[in-house]
Design a protein around this nucleic acid. Structure first.
Length: 312
RNA sequence: GCGUCGGUGGCAGAGCGGUCAAUUGCACUAGACUGUAAAUCUAGCGCCCUUCGGGCUACGGAGGUUCGAAUCCUCCCCGACGCA
């Protein structure tokens, strides 16, 4: 079976990934697969930076939830209910299905998104342990002190205990959950698929990125971000759930619980900006360790890289 | 002008004779990442030396008391409040 080319676009938030993806899609006949852990949820639109659905796009019939933006098909947006827990595993499953479809259509899959874990799980095809969340077990473990969790894991799987973050409770709990079901936490493997990909990373000067974050937040607030959050709550999402989405959703949810105002005080805006900046830095930390990424500064470099890549 | 309280590391704010280069939070920098990943977690953060460790400069300024001062005293500068 011949290997199919895929393009991946990564970079910190507000770096212009979506625009680049559309541009490449237009030029090379591509379809876009979003890799964003918040854009998968229906209703999280402005805050997650979701791309707009084309107004008069005739019903797009290939995948049920996909839609056109600037005439380009976008996938894996709005595929989950915000009331339900979504996960990398589901993303991986949906993503590989969509990519196969796109390849079948003879189009170029362009994976584009800020969630590094999602991008990697999809492209490298991680063998994630087939252990669904066990809510009862989690609730029980949640009551234990962190050291106790470590001890439990050490007994179940001393090897995993060796390299886990012993202070990170969610990780400990998940590891115990897996080990309890499987007898151990199997080492993470990647399973090859008939794909090969080029990863393009968008590099933005830190000062400039901060400015872009600031400007984009202002735009979002003007676009009705606060109303979006309030409506989500009105439609049944708990404040707690909204807070768990982080950044815009968390800050505004916290604010809206104590205020009916439609304007965010400037000190809260500053704090939110800082949080988004921290997030951007965490994203960079994630990708820095991948030496295969081609970091680019403008569209031209990206199109050139893509052209060369597709020639091979 | 008198009185009171205060001036601590980028900011906020502890410490109030030794164990203090100075708790803590924020910011900043770096890192991790096995089904919550916009989440979660870790480390560093005065300067110099190669780590253990050591040296130097520091708690508004200048003096002083003391074996020893961010901590006590005196004067000066600055701020807040009160009385004029």
């Amino acid at each position: 079976m011949p290997s199919s080319p895929i393009i991946a676009i990564v970079g910190p938030t507000a770096s212009g990934k979506s625009a680049l993806a559309v541009r490449l899609a237009k030029k090379f006949g591509g379809e876009i697969i979003s890799a964003d852990s918040r854009q998968v949820y229906r209703g999280l639109d402005i805050g997650s930076g979701k791309v707009l659905r084309d107004k008069l796009s005739k019903r797009y019939k290939l995948e049920p939830r996909s839609y056109l933006h600037q005439g380009i098909p976008h996938h894996l947006l709005d595929v989950a209910s915000p009331r339900r827990q979504f996960s990398v595993a589901q993303y991986q499953k949906l993503g590989s299905r969509v990519i196969e479809q796109i390849i079948k259509r003879g189009k170029l899959p362009i994976v584009c998104g800020g969630t590094g874990f999602y991008v990697e799980a999809l492209l490298k095809n991680y063998t994630l342990p087939p252990v669904p969340p066990n809510l009862k077990l989690r609730a029980k473990l949640e009551k234990l002190p962190t050291e106790k969790l470590g001890e439990k894991l050490e007994i179940l799987d001393p090897e995993r205990f060796q390299n886990i973050d012993v202070k990170n409770r969610p990780r400990l709990i998940r590891a115990i959950e897996i080990a309890a079901a499987l007898g151990e936490v199997p080492p993470l493997e990647t399973k090859a698929r008939p794909w090969h990909w080029l990863t393009i990373g968008i590099k933005v000067d830190p000062e400039k990125l901060r400015q872009k974050i600031k400007a984009r937040l202002t735009t979002r607030l003007r676009a009705g971000l606060i109303n979006e959050v309030k409506n989500l709550h009105r439609n049944g999402l708990s404040w707690k759930r909204l807070e768990s989405f982080g950044l815009e959703y968390a800050h505004i949810a916290r604010f809206a619980q104590h205020s009916v105002s439609h304007r965010l005080p400037s000190d809260l805006i500053d704090k939110l900006e800082t949080d988004i900046w921290h997030y951007a830095k965490r994203q960079m930390t994630w990708w820095r360790r991948d030496p295969t990424i081609h970091w680019i500064k403008n569209y031209r470099e990206a199109t050139q890289l893509t052209r060369d890549f597709l020639k091979k």
